[in-house]
Each structure stands twice: as C-alpha cells, then as structure tokens.
Simulated assay, not measured.
Amino acid sequence: MAGMDVFVDRLDPDMCVVTAAAGGERAGCLVGFSSQCSLDPVRYAVWLSEVNRTFLVARSADVLAVHLLARDQHGTAELFGGRTGDETDKFQRVRWRTGHGGAVVLEDAEAWFVGRVVERVPGGD
C-alpha cells in the first residue's frame, strides 16, 4: 500500500478513481473533484455526484479507496469515467482485490490509499 504522503505528493486530480463496497455491492468512478483538506490529521475529501451509482454504494461504506492512475492508463480512466455500474461490472475488466476494511483496491493503480469515512457532507450534484 502506498503511503498517504507519497500519494498526496503525486496527485493528479484528473485521474483519480474512487471505489466503494457496502451491502454486498461494489462500485467505482473517476472523480473530478478531490483534495487533501487537512494536514494534521491528514485528511482527504472526494466529492461524488449524487446521481452516480458509486455515490449510492459509498453512502453506506465505512471506507473508500482512492486510486491515482498513471497518465497512460486511459482505458481504466475511460472505464470508470465513461461506463455506469448499472450496466457494466467494471471490476470484471480490471485486476482488483479486497483491501483494508473491505475496500476495493485496483491492483494496477499507480498509487492508492484506503481512507475511513469521517464525515459525509452534501455538496454538488
């Protein structure tokens, strides 16, 4: 597992995938908005669209996995950004494993971390 400091130092918010697992379901999406939001303790925020299937799964998840994709991982970015989990099982098309707290970890991500959901705040579509 990549450390949080290494992840934050290399972050490219345009290529960030968040995955969630809860209630026997798993989901993931490319996120357009994410940011480190605290230094001590280190905290990271992701904003998920309320119309996205990942939001529905994430609202019941205790942890989320945040993945940094390499610039050449266009296929993974397109899969998680351009397909809906309502119609496609995205996880049949990528290598993944279960991580800390039941998180879904994409094995080919450049870097990743699993974070505990501390708070849920409405903010966006």
Rank of each mutant, 00 (worst) to 15 (best):
D86S: 14
D86T: 15
E87K: 13
E87V: 13
E87D: 15
E87F: 04
T88G: 00
T88I: 15
T88Q: 11
T88D: 11
T88M: 10
D89Y: 01
K90G: 09
K90A: 08
K90Y: 05
K90S: 04
K90W: 11
F91S: 08
F91Q: 04
F91W: 11
F91R: 06
F91A: 08
Q92N: 13
Q92G: 12
Q92T: 14
Q92L: 14
Q92H: 12
Q92M: 12
R93N: 11
R93E: 15
R93A: 15
R93Y: 13
V94P: 03
V94L: 05
V94M: 01
V94C: 05
V94A: 11
V94R: 00
V94Y: 00
R95F: 02
R95I: 06
R95N: 07
R95G: 02
W96R: 03
W96E: 01
W96S: 05
W96C: 06
W96V: 01
W96I: 07
W96N: 04
R97K: 06
R97N: 00
T98D: 10
T98G: 10
T98V: 15
T98C: 06
T98L: 02
T98M: 08
G99F: 07
G99L: 08
H100E: 10
H100V: 09
H100S: 10
H100G: 02
H100F: 10
H100A: 12
G101C: 10
G101Y: 05
G101D: 05
G101N: 02
G101Q: 02
G102D: 03
G102W: 00
G102R: 01
A103H: 04
A103T: 07
V104T: 13
V104G: 01
V104E: 07
V105C: 06
V105D: 06
V105H: 04
L106N: 09
L106Y: 05
L106D: 04
L106P: 04
L106E: 07
L106K: 11
E107P: 04
E107F: 02
D108E: 12
D108L: 07
D108P: 04
A109W: 02
E110C: 13
E110P: 01
E110M: 14
E110T: 13
E110Y: 10
E110F: 12
A111H: 10
A111N: 07
A111T: 06
A111S: 13
A111E: 12
A111Q: 13
A111F: 03
W112D: 08
W112Q: 09
W112R: 04
W112I: 05
W112P: 04
F113T: 10
F113I: 13
F113V: 12
F113M: 11
V114M: 01
V114D: 09
V114K: 07
V114N: 08
V114F: 07
G115N: 08
R116P: 06
V117N: 03
V117W: 03
V117I: 15
V117T: 13
V117A: 02
V118C: 14
E119T: 15
E119I: 14
E119P: 06
